[in-house]
Simulated scan of single mutants.
Amino acid sequence: MSLIGGLLIGASTALVLVLNGRIAGVSGMLGSLLERDRSDTAWRVAFIVGLLIAPLVYRNFGGTLPPVVLDAPLGLLMVAGLLVGFGTRLGAGCTSGHAVCGIGRGSPRSIAATLIFTATAMITVFVTRHVLGV
Rank of each mutant, 00 (worst) to 15 (best):
T41Q: 14
L76Q: 11
L77Q: 12
V68D: 00
G50Y: 04
L33R: 11
G25C: 11
Y58P: 03
F86Y: 15
L19M: 10
P66W: 03
A92Q: 11
N20K: 15
A42S: 10
S39I: 01
V18I: 12
G21K: 01
N60H: 11
G85L: 12
L82H: 08
P66R: 06
A54K: 04
A72L: 14
L90V: 15
T95L: 09
T88E: 07
L52K: 01
L33G: 12
A46E: 04
A24K: 13
V49A: 15
R36H: 03
L76Y: 13
L51R: 05
P73Y: 07
A42C: 01
F61P: 00
L51K: 03
G85D: 12
P73M: 05
C94A: 05
P73L: 03
A72C: 01
E35A: 06
V79N: 04
R36N: 05
G62D: 08
L34A: 09
A54S: 14
G62R: 02
P55Q: 02
D71Y: 09
A92F: 01
G93A: 04
P66K: 06
G25M: 08
T41V: 14
V18K: 13
L74F: 15
L52R: 04
V26N: 13
L65W: 02
S32K: 10
T41W: 15
V18G: 00
A92D: 08
V84P: 02
S32A: 13
T64Y: 00
G97N: 09
P66F: 05
L52C: 10
A72N: 02
R59T: 08
L30R: 04
G75L: 13
G93N: 07
L90I: 11
R22K: 14
P66S: 09
C94L: 08
R38D: 13
A54M: 10
R38T: 05
E35I: 00
G97R: 13
S27N: 12
A46Q: 04
R36C: 00
R22L: 06
I53H: 05
L77M: 11
L56G: 13
L52S: 06
V49G: 08
M78N: 00
N20R: 15
L82D: 05
A24T: 06
P67C: 06
L33V: 02
P67L: 04
V68P: 01
G31Q: 06
T64F: 00
V79S: 03
R59E: 04
G21M: 03
D37C: 02
R38E: 10
L56V: 03
L51I: 15
S96N: 07
L82Q: 06
L19C: 04
F61V: 08
F47N: 09
G25P: 08
V45Y: 02
L74W: 15
A46W: 10
W43V: 12
T41C: 07
F47I: 14
L52T: 06
V68H: 00
L34M: 09
L34K: 07
L17H: 10
L19H: 07
R44S: 10
T64S: 08
L65T: 05
G75M: 13
N20T: 11
N20S: 11
T64R: 08
T95F: 09
I23F: 02
G91Q: 02
T95M: 10
V68S: 07
T95N: 14
V68G: 04
G81K: 12
G91V: 08
V49Q: 01
G85P: 11
R89F: 06
P67H: 12
M29F: 15
